[in-house]
Design a protein around this nucleic acid. Structure first.
Lengths: 335, 335
DNA sequence: TATATTGAAGTAAACGTTTACGTAAAAACG
DNA sequence: CGTTTTTACGTAAACGTTTACTTCAATATA
């Protein structure tokens, strides 16, 4: 097919060992032969076979990434960061799209392990026992991104959702709001759903604002639709609401759209704060005030943790990334 | 490290050839030994080494994808489709993020070729001669996605941008508009910029509507900012405008935001049609009428073309995917 | 000058598979 | 029952590298 190291060796009248040494900068050859060999490589257009290298070196310079879905700008930013860090470390990334499906996830894990990826980033989803045991048995390093495991000792990279939600609610309170509602995403989601609700509740409690059932609408997911249907529901059960904490930017966009349809002015009549700071948060009308997660950075850090593990063999600590409120125009001080 | 086929063979008292045959369903063993071997595999938790397989089979079951940027929902949808089709065909995908940088692109191509990917999807960017020659020399199948090459015989998958833009303009015209402007994206972009402008012009001409300099604002890219700055510019040079064709949904969102800031009501005072039908097009205020590209499907088709090439060795024809107008609420019939 | 050291290479084994080829026993056939 | 065919394996080479060991000449050292 294409040329091999043998072809190069033959053409240059040296042994394959010499070619290999030159290619890997390993000492043991003269400048003259190097030049000769490089010339042959150039002429032939020889490209070293990374598969063969991987076989003998037991290192593929490839990492695998598992996402529940691809078409979400949250995931995209994470991937962006991962890819960046991987590339900086001379590795490539294989993306897998699990659709939050247990069987698919297992298949992907199997695939990645058979391909002998150096490590795995598991993103935005809960690490089931089955998954954990499988990669543990295969001894492949794994790091969690934008998720966390309470049951297993796996390093993770994420923001503190409890704290971030607290910050969001507190921000609204500091703006003079007292009639504050939340549209929460899935409360069964123990890693991103529940903590945000708890953080919201805690902020309310700390400010001595009563927070009951009616303050919170639990939706099934974190999507646009959840915001669209969430707002009318919230208004129905809590008509005096003046400010809303949406558990994701997509929910917030749904709220914005729903408010617009109902003729509710944001932020004049209703303030809205989101969560994530997706790219589209600055494109909404009005531009969305939100809790920013450093998504790209988080992806980078997750990948870097993997590389650290390759180097040292030790498992580093998890990283809680800082969140911040990104002030735009969807929240107004209450008179 | 982990178990090999030899360990399995020894443990099961058979030769490695037999294990291999069982693993690949190759005939040449009895049911009894199969059961015995499978049991050993199960016990050991043996995982076949795809790297070794790749070396001997000259097939890695991996394809590479090059994107100019990752954080764009356009690219994400394409990737989604590619990944889906790849997975259906037992392959994985390596993503590369070129940032439209020639050097980075060449590095990625080199990387992918060294890793011996079975094929490459080159997306949303123009295929430079240097790129083409390099992958051609390596004899790696390549397919273009959402882009096209006039100079080289490379199969592509995309919509007909000229025709799609024509459709957009015609749609506005059919709604009774005659004062129609365009915010065009980069007109130097010969594959997506220029054809859309030409399509727009043609539709205007065919309807005997004069279309001059002032009808079109050329921006440098296809992003939100371009819409934000584009609208004021367009209004200044063409104050009577009642409808706008934005060359991308992101531009359209910029237009929407800019219009909102200036107190221009969409669609009452100004109609806007976009291009792409990104996920976020339905989340805008008002929901965006746009030209839909079947992005996920396009990704799938691109990958399938690659698999077809692997099978047949022949290069299939390019595919022009159908576009359609997705009617939402940002365009209004003119009184 | 005799010996030790260094430098520049080559040889061959190993990585974990697949597969062409060989072989012995079992089955089928006449 | 003798011969042919089939079945069920085993042996060993190959895939394209890296690298531990060798080797041989040139240089440094005593």
């Amino acid at each position: 097919m294409s040329y091999t190291i043998k072809d190069v060796a033959k053409e240059a009248n040296v042994s394959i060992a010499t070619v290999s040494r030159i290619l890997n900068g390993q000492a043991g050859y003269s400048e003259k032969t190097k030049i000769k060999v490089m010339k042959v490589i150039e002429e032939l257009g020889y490209s070293p076979n990374a598969v063969a290298r991987g076989l003998i070196n037991k290192r593929t310079h490839t990492i695998g990434v598992l996402f529940p879905k691809l078409s979400s700008s949250l995931v995209t930013d994470l991937l962006d960061g991962i890819e960046k860090a991987a590339n900086d470390n001379g590795s490539s990334v294989i993306v897998c799209h699990t659709e939050s499906n247990g069987k698919k996830t297992m298949n992907y894990l199997q695939l990645l392990i058979e391909k002998r990826v150096d490590g795995i980033v598991f993103a935005s989803e809960v690490l089931k026992e089955e998954y954990y045991q499988y990669v543990k048995k295969a001894k492949v390093p794994i790091v969690l991104l934008s998720t966390e495991s309470y049951a297993f000792p796996v390093p993770y990279v994420k923001v503190n959702d409890f704290h971030a939600a607290y910050t969001a609610a507190k921000y609204l309170i500091d703006k003079g709001h007292t009639e504050i509602g939340m549209i929460s995403g899935n409360k069964e989601d123990i890693v991103a759903g529940k903590p945000r609700i708890d953080g919201f509740r805690k902020a309310m409690a700390d400010s001595r604002i009563v927070c009951e059932e009616r303050n919170i609408v639990n939706s099934s997911g974190f999507g646009f639709r959840d915001g669209i249907v969430g707002l009318p529901k919230l208004i129905e059960q809590f008509p005096s609401v003046t400010a809303i904490f949406a558990a994701s930017d997509e929910i917030a966009m749904g709220v914005l759209s729903s408010a617009y349809q109902q003729g509710i002015k944001v932020p004049e009549e209703l303030s809205v704060i989101g969560f994530d700071n997706l790219d589209l948060a600055e494109m909404t009308i009005p531009p969305l005030t939100t809790i920013g997660q450093p998504l790209v950075k988080m992806g980078e850090v997750a990948a870097q943790i993997l590389f650290k593990i390759f180097e040292t063999g030790e498992i580093p600590e998890s990283r809680i990334m800082p969140h911040k409120v990104v002030e735009r125009l969807s929240v107004k001080e209450r008179a």
